[in-house]
């Protein structure tokens, strides 16, 4: 069981059971989490699946690729040190208990 909690900009939370091997984006979409739009479907072409990771998730996720890092610069809500594109983070057991915060806007 890998529990991940999504936190909306208004503070509301929902904890879901994630599957290893899915991305965080796929997990959010499978559970009807608002605010992870991922319009391109996970090809790093749109920057609309931007999320903020907590320390558990950041450690588990490892570093972003250069392409992802570039795309994060253009996200509608300005990036922070803990920003990632959720389509590029794969769920593993190490993500159990992680909290993912959805940004104010994806555009």
């Amino acid at each position: 069981m890998i529990d991940i909690t999504f936190i909306q900009p208004d503070g509301s939370q929902k904890t879901v059971a994630a599957k290893a091997g899915h991305t965080i984006m796929e997990t959010a979409q499978a559970h009807g989490i608002d605010g992870v739009i991922a319009e391109c479907g996970g090809s790093m072409a749109c920057a609309t699946c931007h999320v903020f990771l907590d320390d558990i998730a950041l450690t588990a996720a490892g570093p972003a690729s250069d392409s992802e890092d570039d795309m994060l610069e253009f996200a509608a809500t300005p990036r922070a040190d803990n920003s990632r594109l959720s389509c590029q983070v794969t769920v593993t057991d190490a993500l159990n208990g992680a909290q993912i915060t959805i940004p104010e806007t994806q555009f």
Binding site: I37, E39, C40, G41, S43, A45, C46, A76, F107
Partner: peptide, 20 residues
């Protein structure tokens, strides 16, 4: 917004936010 007017995948329309 789940439409495909801007395509899907690596060729997703780069101008989509501007059109919107």
């Amino acid at each position: 917004r789940n439409h495909m007017a801007f395509g899907k995948g690596l060729h997703h329309c780069v101008g989509a936010p501007l059109a919107r």
